[in-house]
Amino acid sequence: MGRWLLLLGGPLIWAAHFLAIYFIASLAEQLRGETGLLARALILATGGGAIVAALLVLAAARRLSTQDALDRFWRLIAQTGAVLAIIAVLWQSLPALAPI
């Protein structure tokens, strides 16, 4: 299971982050009628958390063996996926910086 989590870690972090920020924005709209400063701060904090998680995946992936082709494949997918997740999370968080 751990191996699979590492392989899919990047996309999973992106998905969790996406759901979380959608939930925060929807909740803010429900409670306050707008995505105000607090909600936006929470969205950015969630993005920060997601990036830290992706960095952890990256670090764990770097420790994977490179002994055979399957190991190298696993490591490459896990690492590149984590890097892509970091870029995607940053991109996905940008709307929170837009003027209110």
């Binding site: 924005a25 995505t35 892509l84 996905q92």
Partner: peptide, 18 residues
């Protein structure tokens, strides 16, 4: 839909092209 939520989906819509 609220603009911020819409913007999240707009961003994802562009990201999927990568």
């Amino acid at each position: 839909l609220p603009h911020v939520s819409t913007a999240f989906f707009s961003a994802a819509g562009m990201a999927v092209s990568v």
